[in-house]
Amino acid sequence: MIQHLVDGILVGSILSLGAIGLTMAMHMLRFANFSHAELLSIGAYCALVFDGVFKAVYTPLGDVIGPLSLTWALSLAIVISMAITGGSAILIDRLVFARVRAKGGELSMVFASFGVAMIIRNVLGLTFGLKVQLYSQDIVFAMVLSRDPFLLVKPDQIFSLVAALIIMFAFHLVLSRTTFGYSLRAVAENPQLAQVSGINLNRMITLIWIIGGGLAAAAGVFYGLTNQINPVLGRDLLLPIFAATIVGGIGSIYGAALGGFLVGIASNLALLILPSGYSPAMPFLIILAVLIIRPTGLFGEERQ
């Protein structure tokens, strides 16, 4: 029970990071972006590549940090990966979404995003192989946090959770303390008024992709660190991330963050009653439950 709860919180933090970017882009551009989760894959593989590069360039970077399997090289690679994934998100927007948008195809964007997702996922598969990969071959033993109730946690999991919380808290400070954060919230609430208040919408779209891509990259690396990396990582996380945005209410950044934790916890607790084979279907049940009980989610607004 406690173990499931803790596991749920750990996975939840990863879902939250993914859902924050998704909910922002979905709200601003008004389409369900089915390629968002592929940004997690891009981030995970990008960090894998740069981890290797840094270790090759300067061997001491290959040392692990404390009890973690995380190396100095990988920590640097996370930062690079966030930047590159943010850049990829903008590139995808320029190449595909912006053009479909310009044609006035708001609904076609959803199709386009599926196509983009398939291309990214399979290009990653072709490039890196379909096999499972790990950031570190070393076996890191889980720590027994308590014997009664029995609770096992890996140091990497604690690192991922703490890092995810720090990233989210930093983003919270940006939203609540800086005029840039106010403009993000202003655009989310009322794009037209934001525009007459002097905010350049196209610039905001670019920034939202950078932030969304960066957060997704961090989520992807943390997932890789605590689980494994494979080309279908994005596909497997897509539905839980969508569920998190719906739980929080589409467009609500804080809702998405909280929604990620709720989906993570609910999916893990469900394993107490359901066989584990059913876990991919859990997010759908959560979506159904939200739609029945409170379609606007926790913090969503009533709008078409």
Binding site: M26, R30, F31, A32, F34, L107, V110, L239, F242, A243, I246, I250, G277, Y278, P280, A281, P283, F284, L285, I287, L288, L291, P295, R303, Q304
Partner: peptide, 22 residues
Amino acid sequence: LRHDYLAIATFGVAVAFENLMR
């Protein structure tokens, strides 16, 4: 609801259906 919900829910039903049948 806004159209994203139908897109997500239908996508979800496909994932869940395959999972259930499996």
